[in-house]
Simulated assay, not measured.
Amino acid sequence: MWTAVWGTSPQRAGASFAPNWSEAGFSNQTVRQVVRVSAGGVATRVRLSNQYGSTPLKVAGATIARTTSGAAVQPSSLRQLTVRHARSFTIPVGREVATDLVPMRLAALESVTITLYLASPTGPATYHPLALATSYRATGDHRSDVGGAPFTETSSSWYYVSGLDVVGQAKRSTGVVAFGDSITDGAGGTADNRYPDQLAERLASAGRPRAVVNQGISGNRVTVDSAWFGDKAVSRFQRDVLDQPGVGTVIILAGINDLGISEVAANPPFPIFAPFTKVSAKQIIAGQRQLVARARADGLRVIGATLLPIKGSSYYTAASEAKRDAVNHWIRTSAEYDAVVDLDRVMASPTDADQLRPTYDSGDHLHPSDAGYDAMANAIDLNDLG
């Protein structure tokens, strides 16, 4: 059976927090992207998404190879990617396609490079802004180049790639999806140090390698759609969790943007956070309840994570803190989750329980540092993963 061992949540084209290539799209260009798998297998396939494209996406050619450094790849590992045995293929608007099986054995925590040659104008590109990885671009067709010299442009986002699956990882559904917002996405941290990355490393170190897929979107909310920060969690849960192959467990860490953006409407730190919809603790809880029910109906084990401290951040007010406390109390005491990881208490300062521990704070009092993400990963009881 197929198991997702890497993934990222597709989003609409936009400027987001940093310049990127999504709005202009691509034309007679090759884009090369590096991803690290959480677990290995004996063969692989790549999933590509045109979820938010305005026209069918014509892929003139694509390859996969083992990463060496930068945009360079291991020559002997280069393989052509095909769909229905064709090297060029089209992805309809609003759809995702999986390539044919590639007989490439991958190990846990190995990096691979996916290269797409886009000959025709693509229009705005479906992408994921916060890759915390470098993507590369070259003019012309360089899908089969093994060196990185032609790839003179770089970006910190991923384009069109939405998943990488393997066969031979497990005989049953044991994969884990980490579902949430920027704290799952890894904002404030560095490449391959998000908490899902570090959880995968911990599992591999324990001799229990297991698929862990990151489906966080920075700025995402449980209850409110955003042009910039993705469809609300209750809408995208089907695509980003339930439709992922080989998943058996989901960790839900969501709601901080609902309550925080509710409180910064009068003086928003980022106008792109609009709409500034007021959301109550009851609405966040109702949204989480819906996610739990849908996961359970699909046979998944569901782990709830309490919301981290936010004192000192732009989100912090007396009202937002009261909402955070109410949501966390429900997560801890409702018994609706199969297990709870109490990240609020794990991440709190010993001198102020409403604030992040200084060594865990990236500096904005909202997002963890690499040390904080490591603490989050270590707080998860591996036995709770099922």
Rank of each mutant, 00 (worst) to 15 (best):
152 T>R: 11
305 A>Y: 06
276 F>W: 05
35 V>P: 01
125 A>R: 05
265 A>H: 12
51 Q>M: 13
18 A>W: 14
12 R>I: 01
306 T>N: 13
69 S>L: 07
299 G>R: 13
139 T>M: 03
11 Q>C: 13
50 N>W: 10
259 L>A: 02
126 T>N: 08
228 W>A: 12
264 V>P: 03
120 S>N: 12
301 R>T: 14
232 K>F: 04
254 A>G: 01
89 F>N: 11
44 T>F: 00
119 A>L: 06
377 A>R: 00
183 I>V: 15
322 A>M: 10
362 S>N: 08
145 D>L: 04
191 A>G: 15
340 V>L: 08
340 V>T: 09
300 L>D: 03
318 A>I: 03
275 P>Q: 05
224 V>Y: 04
148 G>K: 06
42 V>M: 13
296 R>N: 14
272 I>T: 15
279 V>S: 02
358 P>D: 10
83 V>G: 01
131 A>D: 03
188 G>W: 05
83 V>E: 05
51 Q>L: 15
111 S>N: 09
249 T>H: 02
284 I>R: 04
126 T>R: 09
71 A>W: 02
157 S>D: 03
66 R>Q: 08
123 G>W: 14
140 G>Y: 09
148 G>F: 00
170 A>Y: 03
273 F>I: 04
295 A>H: 00
198 Q>A: 04
229 F>W: 14
126 T>A: 06
289 R>K: 14
260 G>A: 10
109 L>M: 15
283 Q>M: 06
331 I>A: 06
80 Q>N: 14
372 G>Q: 07
323 K>I: 04
385 L>P: 07
118 L>S: 08
280 S>L: 04
122 T>D: 03
281 A>N: 04
81 L>V: 11
332 R>S: 05
111 S>E: 14
36 R>V: 14
80 Q>D: 15
60 A>K: 08
138 A>G: 08
50 N>T: 11
111 S>M: 11
125 A>P: 05
190 T>S: 15
42 V>F: 12
64 I>D: 08
272 I>Y: 05
224 V>I: 13
46 V>H: 12
253 L>I: 02
319 A>L: 10
275 P>V: 10
56 P>D: 11
345 R>S: 14
80 Q>P: 00
116 L>K: 10
185 D>E: 15
52 Y>T: 01
242 L>W: 05
286 A>K: 07
132 L>H: 14
209 P>H: 08
195 Y>M: 03
75 P>K: 13
319 A>Y: 02
245 P>H: 14
308 L>D: 09
63 T>F: 08
181 D>P: 06
255 G>N: 07
83 V>Y: 12
214 N>Y: 02
136 Y>G: 01
301 R>A: 02
242 L>Y: 03
107 A>P: 01
209 P>F: 09
231 D>R: 13
28 N>F: 01
238 Q>D: 13
66 R>P: 00
362 S>G: 07
21 W>Q: 04
260 G>W: 08
349 S>V: 10
37 V>K: 08
68 T>P: 02
319 A>I: 06
48 L>D: 09
99 T>M: 06
286 A>N: 11
283 Q>N: 07
49 S>H: 13
369 S>M: 14
250 V>T: 13
77 S>T: 15
